[in-house]
Design a binder for these strands. Structure first.
Length: 588
RNA sequence: GCGCCCGUAGCUCAAUCGGAUAGAGCAUCGGCCUUCUAAGCCGAGGGUUGCAGGUUCGAUUCCUGCCGGGCGUACCA
């Protein structure tokens, strides 16, 4: 499990209360008992609850309610909150409005919105990693969107992040593509024109491979020539790769993914290390030859009928499978990039493979005890028949098409909802809403489960979607526009006393203070949906507040306080969405 | 066969090292636009958390066994 150390003291209330209560337990003679502080599930139970007393009482053979009462007696939270015993021994904690107001003021003055930097680590993030012999399709969205959000978040937390786009640009699959390019060249066709539509190009080559035996033979020849370094063949290959990379980059740019050309570290980059890595493993005594293939057998991997499960590092024909490539990549990330952590945002179906890669790397000493290599798996996108979307048959959904479709749908909507905007403004709204919806759809659900691709679900614009959050943001901005107020030029004290504030106002205020908790919870397991949930709940709280608490028409003190509350909400929404790779708008 | 993942409202999903009455969105139904953007708000209905046991003061969560689904399991990646 990766560990993160916080540098400065953070404004994480949950952690603060957790530590404080744990120490208080210690002070009344209850050691080693976690306080188990969490946000309350219900408003009537206060804002936080500590559930640890019941377990502690049980271990000590004490009455839990009595122990809870003793604990409260020494808590000393007078300036911050009130605590009470409830039920079998829960401790309910309600923050005081004066404390909430003070914390909000601090948060408002902090450009990091209360989130402390962590002790910097070198973190390598492997994500997106499409195969260049195939068109980028909907299946690549998960790794790309989730990985990009992780990268942005880790950088914000102060880490040194290296993006690695481990693209598939090598291997047998390129044989038919190169053979097809070769044929076109000989026929005098303009390659640049043909390569403009890669999808058609892939399909033509693939069909020819199936239907034309002599073409299939040429394709196999090209594989051999490619791997032996034939210059003419490499030239063709490079031309194809360049075109394919341009296509990928265009898709990244369209989706506002932070990957750049220089982040590409493709499979072919590891070719020279392949013989070396086999030798290294042999010298450690880890290699056995089985059926002509060089294999590593580790006890922890058992195959069919209880037999040892091999990891093949060199095939019987002398070729290197991707196990070997991935092992060289581990060396690169460990030794060259000095990774404290390496995160692999890769389809869950690769679990066994990556477990083998990491286990072999540890056995061979490629990675040290202190280095954490982790597979962050995610589920598969399925078609309506419940089968994985495949590239070979017709059912491919091109990623670029999803982007186009989403923007088109958003444009229809903006025309309907806000006809007053200029055409140019509408286009921009449609673009930002469209790509936000796509990415958020990926990020907001649990990454581990499979799901069925459906246009309407993926491109939904209401409920827990990016447009809902973006809309909340524009409503706030509209308030400031209405009275021509510059949010950076207002200042004063928050007024959150119950007599002058609606419940919605207090709820919103507390939700804002919990931003740090949402952000810091994500790197535990890279569940971006935790941050999405938070932002959605924040937006819901704001929408309620907006309906029930007039801002501009309130009396002066309350008006100023509410303006600041709105401003802070806008800042958190924008910041959180940016961490997810989603942009905000002034109007929509 | 073995291994990993999954099974929660009609649908898509939440549920923070086991916690209080399992929550949202969509869909359905009923309200709310002379008042800061209705892509919105308020309310209603909808559940034996696949089944059966076990551990526990307390289980969607942990354990065991079934049922159902997905993926993986020696030279594709």
């Amino acid at each position: 499990m990766a560990t993160f150390a916080v540098l400065a003291s953070s404004m994480n209330l949950r952690h603060f209360l957790d530590r404080h209560i744990e120490q208080s337990l210690l002070s009344i003679g209850v050691p080693d008992s976690p306080a188990l502080v969490k946000q309350s599930g219900r408003p009537e139970f206060g804002h936080y609850q500590a559930d640890g007393v019941m377990g502690a009482a049980k271990r000590l053979g004490k009455n839990p309610r009595n122990l809870a009462a003793s604990l409260i007696a020494v808590l000393d939270l007078n300036e911050i909150a009130t605590a009470s015993v409830a039920g079998p021994g829960f401790i309910n904690i309600a923050l005081k409005p004066t404390f909430i107001a003070t914390e909000l003021s601090k948060m408002r003055k902090d450009t990091r919105l209360g989130v402390a930097k962590q002790k910097p680590q070198n973190i390598v993030v492997d994500y997106s990693s499409p195969n260049l012999a195939k068109e980028m399709h909907i299946g690549h969205l998960r790794s790309t969107a989730i990985g990009d959000a992780a990268v942005r978040l880790l950088e914000f937390l102060g880490h040194q992040v290296t993006r690695v786009n481990h693209m598939g640009d090598w291997g047998a699959q390129f044989g038919s593509l190169l053979a097809y390019m070769d044929r076109l060249t000989k026929k005098g066709e303009e390659l640049a024109t043909e390569l403009k539509d890669l999808e058609v190009f892939y399909q033509s080559a693939s069909q020819l491979f199936k239907s034309d035996e002599s073409f299939a033979n040429e394709a196999r020849q090209f594989v051999v020539r490619l791997q032996s370094g034939d210059p003419e063949c490499l030239r063709l290959w490079q031309q194809f790769i360049d075109e394919s990379l341009n296509h990928c980059q265009a898709t990244y740019d369209a989706l506002d993914i932070s990957l750049k050309r220089e982040d590409v570290h493709a499979e072919s980059a590891y070719n020279e290390g392949l013989p070396q890595v086999v030798k290294a493993l042999e010298s450690k005594g880890l290699v056995q030859v089985s059926d002509g293939a060089k294999c590593v057998f580790l006890d922890e991997f058992v195959g069919k009928d209880g037999k040892p499960l091999p990891a093949i590092i060199q095939k019987s024909d002398g070729g290197y499978p991707y196990m070997a490539t991935d092992l060289v990549a581990v060396q690169y990330r460990s030794e060259e990039l000095k990774a404290d952590q390496a995160l692999y945002f890769v389809d869950g179906r690769q679990s066994l493979h990556l477990a083998q890669v990491f286990a072999i790397s540890r056995a061979a000493g490629f990675i040290s005890e202190a280095q954490h290599f982790r597979h962050i798996p995610f589920g598969t996108i399925l078609n309506k028949a419940g089968k994985p979307l495949k590239t070979r048959d017709g059912g491919v959904v091109k990623l670029a098409d999803v982007v186009t479709e989403s923007i088109a749908r958003a444009l229809v909507l903006v025309n309907e909802k806000t006809p007053s905007l200029s055409d140019q403004a509408k286009q921009e709204v449609a673009r930002i809403v469209g790509i936000g919806a796509i990415k958020y759809a990926e990020l907001s659900r649990n990454r581990t489960t499979d799901y069925i691709f459906d246009w309407d679900t993926m491109l939904a614009f209401e409920g827990n979607t990016a447009p809902y959050l973006q809309y909340a943001y524009t409503r706030i901005r509209s308030i400031f526009r209405q009275d021509k107020i510059d949010p950076n030029k207002i200042d004063g004290e928050f007024h959150l006393h119950p007599q002058s504030s609606a419940a919605a106002e207090i709820s919103l205020a507390i939700k804002l203070l919990q931003y740090v908790e949402a952000v810091e919870s994500v790197p535990d397991d890279y569940q971006a949906n935790l941050l999405c949930n938070y932002l959605f709940e924040l937006s819901c709280q704001f929408m309620s507040f907006y309906e029930s608490c007039p801002v501009l028409k309130a009396e002066a003190k309350v008006r100023l306080s509410r303006l600041m509350l709105c401003d802070l909400t806008a800042k958190v929404l924008q910041h959180g969405l940016n961490l997810l790779g989603v942009s905000t708008l002034e109007k929509m």
